[in-house]
Design a protein around this nucleic acid. Structure first.
Lengths: 206, 206
DNA sequence: AAAAATAATGAACAGTGTTAATAAATTGCG
DNA sequence: CGCAATTTATTAACACTGTTCATTATTTTT
């Protein structure tokens, strides 16, 4: 059935077109300015056509979210070269903060917005492949730190949660303009890095 | 000029009416379901009338946000009875988490949404009275801990930032359904409390 | 070639925040 | 008091939003 295959390929190509147009709008005009009609305009289709290829807007946002994770995962490529897991954890944290500050729109979708998670939950088992990969990276590093007795042992998930919470707390408060209420605006980024460094240092000592 | 005074009072009363109707919708139907038209319907005014009393929707959301902070500050009343600043910090953290989990809609407005901060920035000097009070509470406790040599000394703002980041990271990831990707859903709340406890314990030791 | 399936669309629904023009009520003043 | 000025409230409209339905056009299958 070569025809069915080719049809499937065509379908996938249009899906890709839609997602690429969405991403273009997304990075240029920001999350709030992505609308079905604007995407449709960009690829010169009618708005209703998008609903043939995606269930709803949430599903499109979900895929953009996954693309964001791909970028983040790619930015973590340098990690494998670092043998000391604590140093690796430190770089992971730095990367996380930098990614969030440099790609606030992606960060929003990946860690703040509800929309993509709605699609995740709608899928049979909670399909969030790239998101899960990113979390797995963190857990693996924490686990290795424990195995090598570099940090106190405990529940991996809970410690991972604490580390994630610091990093996410910093980034999300920063991109939502809350941190500049605590430190002067031009010192926010510096303080964020100090905080994450402090966090990992205390992990070491503990 | 008693008439002008009374007029001002009337004006203030209608503003209150609008805010109370907004809050009613807000706590019952959630943040996303508060619309100018629904508020207007509830108080039996036309939608455009609201624009006589508030500049825009952001300004209404800003006031709801401030009301959220009032609730949060009220829930911290028990703090003053605790003499040990570390214990006080611990209760502050617990209160913060509980408040966030019990009032996710308020929490959203106070710490996640952009809308209220837009109004804050539009005002002359960045008017965020209740938000600033809440942050001041945290800073004062941290300062007292340092003064009494209960935690290592350093930049108060930066340490406060780290503490806030953990708490906010936990709550915001929780209410945005991200934490259940790391620990089983029924253990999320427990792990959150463990994380904040761990955080303050390591602060103590450091 | 006719029938069935797929793809695409225009029109419409029910909503959103916001503004301009207009009507109604209230207040200030001679 | 009566008239003008101001304040308050409303209706209509603009320019959007996500989404659905009925209809048309295209393609595939029989």
């Amino acid at each position: 059935m070569g025809i069915l295959e080719r049809k499937e390929k065509q379908r996938e190509e249009i899906r890709k077109m839609i997602l690429e147009a969405s991403m273009q709008l997304f990075v240029k005009e920001g999350f709030e300015n992505v609308s079905i009609r604007k995407i449709a305009d960009l690829i010169e289709y009618s708005p209703t056509t998008l609903y043939i290829y995606f269930k709803d807007k949430n599903e499109i946002l979900f895929h953009l979210c996954e693309m964001g994770f791909e970028r983040m995962i790619a930015s973590n490529l340098a990690l494998i070269q670092i043998e000391n897991p604590i140093d690796r954890l430190y770089l992971l944290g730095e990367n996380y903060i930098n990614f969030g500050l440099e790609n606030p729109e992606y960060y929003d979708l990946m860690f703040i917005q509800n929309a993509p998670m709605k699609t995740v939950r709608e899928q049979n088992v909670g399909y969030w492949p790239n998101g899960d990969i990113a979390l797995e990276t963190l857990k693996l590093i924490i686990q290795e730190c424990m195995d090598k007795k570099l940090i106190q042992s405990g529940d991996v998930a809970t410690i991972s949660m604490a580390v994630w919470a610091v990093a996410h707390g910093l980034v999300s408060l920063a991109i939502r303009q809350r941190l500049e209420r605590l430190v002067e605006p031009d010192k926010v980024v510096q303080s964020m890095h100090e905080s994450i460094r402090w966090m990992i240092n205390t992990l070491k000592k503990a």
